[in-house]
Amino acid sequence: MKTGEAHIVVEDLTMAYGDFVIQRDLDFTVNHGDVFIIMGGSGCGKSTLLKIMIGLKSPAKGEVYFDGKPFWSSSIKEQEAMKRKFGTLFQSGALWSSMTLSENIGLALTQYTSLSDAEIREVAAYKLMLVGLAGFEDYYPNEISGGMKKRAGLARAMALDPEILFFDEPSAGLDPISAKLLDDLILELRDSLGTTVVVVTHELASIFAIANNSVFLDTDARTQLATGDPKELRDHNSNPVVRNFLHRGKVEVQVA
């Protein structure tokens, strides 16, 4: 376990669509075993930042380091090897609709390991057990509910025992209980596997429940306003925008 050491370092990152700069000068560090939140208002570029971190979109400037190794200046082959250590849960699960849950989870295993079909099925069954979907191996994604799709997506993200799990809005569209269960699951996985977790969200309840580190992106300033433990930021940060966000807008009401 390397808990506490720097795992992901984002350095001097600028992201843009064409000429339109979304965020600039992003600098933050995610440590091993962190539950790290990328937060900010709608449209500030949270999901774009996630896309850059998981290697789907290249940054306009800057670099992302994983365990000290630069991602974007590495060769395609090295990038592929690094990507294999990530697991990503997309916003609505993004399960492949033509495959059963078991096949969804098994695809990465068929690709990257030499396990037999029976063994892959066993692994898939175990991953589904972990997320509370025991017995659903042969279901197709359109036969299960939204919350189950998310959990199945998480099972797929964990197929290769990733070192880093990325979540895009995990609790969006879930009822409070399911959202809480998913939060608990995230913490449990972090604790038992030592996985580093990066979460894009703006659900305050979820942020305070799971996070120990974060970065706050602002739409107007187009850069990060703060980084650190969200509870600290809520109580002690000097920037009113950050405190306002973490207090659900109540700070400004008091000022006025």
Binding site: Y126, M129, L130, G132, L133, A134, G135, F136, E137, D138, Y139, L185, E188, D191, S192, L193, G194
Partner: peptide, 22 residues
């Protein structure tokens, strides 16, 4: 090991839903 015990507990935490298996 500690982590493995928690994972096993997690895996068995939710019982298989009756009639789910096909």
């Amino acid at each position: 090991p500690e982590g493995a015990r928690r994972l096993v507990a997690l895996a068995f935490a939710v019982k298989e839903r009756e009639g789910a298996r096909r």
